[in-house]
């Protein structure tokens, strides 16, 4: 298939950036989207042009490195997959595909389609962990956990931190990401001791970094490659409210 690609090019964070149109031809329907970009980049390199920078790593939907806002949708058309899992059969021959970077104040563009997602790491550092002491290996069945809770915690933990929720949200809100990270611990007994402190610190960090607020538009859930549910956002709000009310003053 032959395609026109309208791609955001920006040399660095300081550069203003603009859209540039490229033509690619003879692309297989079975090629992955990133393979199609690889082909474009090879052609650009041969011509002596600067290849298009984009994030990728595992190319199998588990690492969360790939991004790209394709035709108005993070990770492109199709539900529940990342850009690296998406194939060219989702597009029509002759189509123009618009490719943009994630847009959010806390995700500044590094180059072209690559954005700096360190903001997510900072939120995790603020409280997205369980403090454990070293020592003997605990008995795996010492603490009984209802299957239903374990499943919900696993569903939340499926978040790969790609940032599609922020990209999709009209407010560039990180609530789906943060709520998944809060929930995966809040649902399990191991996470309870630090639960109140955790939710308050992570929310404070999220606000400080300049992410938007949640209007419950639910575009995040629709675009999440791991189909994380907005029920997690409600859980986080619940956790936050309880923490504010019952937690002792620090």
């Amino acid at each position: 298939m032959d395609l026109t690609l309208k791609i955001w090019r920006q040399a660095s964070g300081l550069d203003k950036g603009k859209f540039v149109n490229y033509k690619v031809g003879n692309i297989s329907h079975d090629a992955s989207f990133l393979e199609m970009l690889d082909i474009l980049n090879e052609e650009l390199v041969i011509k002596g042009d600067d290849p298009v920078a984009f994030d990728h790593d595992c190319r199998e939907g588990i690492c969360g490195a790939c991004s790209l806002y394709i035709n108005g949708r993070p990770h492109g058309p199709d539900r529940g997959i990342t850009t690296c899992q998406m194939h060219m059969r989702n597009f029509k021959d002759g189509e123009t595909i618009v490719i943009e970077p994630w847009r959010a104040k806390p995700f500044p563009v590094i180059k072209d389609l690559m954005v700096d997602r360190t903001a997510f790491d900072k939120i995790i550092q603020a409280g997205g962990f369980v403090s454990v002491r070293t020592g003997g290996v605990p008995d795996a069945n010492a603490i009984a956990i209802p299957k239903h809770d374990a499943d919900l915690a696993m569903d939340a933990a499926a978040c790969i931190g790609c940032g599609a929720c922020v990209a999709a949200c009209k407010n560039a809100s990180a609530m789906l990401f943060v709520s998944a990270k809060v929930s995966q611990f809040a649902l399990l007994p191991q996470g309870r001791p630090e639960a109140h402190e955790r939710v308050q610190k992570m929310v404070a960090k999220m606000d400080e970094l300049g992410f938007g607020n949640c209007t419950n538009t639910y575009a995040c859930e629709a675009e999440c490659p791991k189909e994380i549910s907005v029920a997690n956002i409600a859980r986080m709000n619940r956790e936050f409210l309880t923490a504010k009310i019952v937690a002792q003053k620090a």
Partner: peptide
């Protein structure tokens, strides 16, 4: 919310539920 996205998209999203 407006401040959280100083540079907007060329293609506006419509994934809202």
């Amino acid at each position: 919310n407006w401040m959280a996205r100083p540079v907007g998209y060329d293609r506006k999203g419509s994934s809202e539920m």
